[in-house]
């Protein structure tokens, strides 16, 4: 996703790129000020994200 955004002209700082979905969820859950998170996954990462958040890939 970072590469696609780069090609679209959006500069993503490398320190803001977390390669593991589980790590992202863990980091976000530590911050109690975050009330809403927008997820823009591609197909394969959508399945992985569901698994981390809901415990299963397919609903």
């Amino acid at each position: 996703m970072a590469v696609r955004l780069k090609h679209a002209g959006v500069n993503i700082e490398e320190r803001n790129i977390v390669p593991s979905i589980a790590s992202v969820v863990k980091e976000l859950s530590k911050n109690k000020n975050i009330k809403e998170v927008i997820v823009l996954p591609n197909y394969s990462s959508m399945l992985d994200f569901r698994k981390v958040v809901l415990g299963r890939k397919i609903l």
Binding site: V3, R4, K6, H7, A8, N42, Y43
Partner: peptide, 13 residues
């Protein structure tokens, strides 16, 4: 499918 137009974006970039 699956954002295949990203191939064009990559080449253009």
């Amino acid at each position: 499918l699956y954002g295949d137009n990203g191939n064009i974006e990559a080449l253009v970039y």
